[in-house]
Design a protein around this nucleic acid. Sequence first.
DNA 1: AGTTTTAATGAAGCGAGGCTTTGTATTTTC
DNA 2: GAAAATACAAAGCCTCGCTTCATTAAAACT
Lengths: 71, 71
Amino acid sequence: MSTLKIQFGQQVRELRRVQGITQEHLANAAGLTTESISNIERGIFGPRFENIEKLAQALNVDVKNLFEFDN
Amino acid sequence: MSTLKIQFGQQVRELRRVQGITQEHLANAAGLTTESISNIERGIFGPRFENIEKLAQALNVDVKNLFEFDN
DNA sequence: AGTTTTAATGAAGCGAGGCTTTGTATTTTC
DNA sequence: GAAAATACAAAGCCTCGCTTCATTAAAACT
């Protein structure tokens, strides 16, 4: 299984928690469902480019920040 | 149209040219077709996470480098 | 200029994976 | 212990990533 999805998900979760917002809030801000946010954070699937953009906006970070983690 | 796909594609192209390799070479290294590389570089579609990983490996860069560009 | 290599483009098709809905269970928080 | 937040499962939809094949255009090289 691809480790990138997992690392990406962990990063989303981390950034979300730092902001102190819930999956539901993030879901609304990004135009997704809470289930999708849950799946993304757990690395079940990796979002499409369109939604990567929306996630970054909702989290007030640059897209690259979503991919900044230790290998 | 999502600008992220386009920026990502430009970055792939840039990194590929720096390495002095052809789309065909990159395609082989990443396990994709030359048409896909062409489509990715032009922002026609954004690759899945699995292939983002493979592209980064083929280009000898970290995934985050593929997303490092000016907004 | 002519030839070869490289890249762009188009059409058509397939399969998978991203995303949703609904519902239930589990965990976390207060 | 109740309420809120998250996990998990199953089922289904359908877009989109990717391929193959074929043609054209552009770049590079001699």
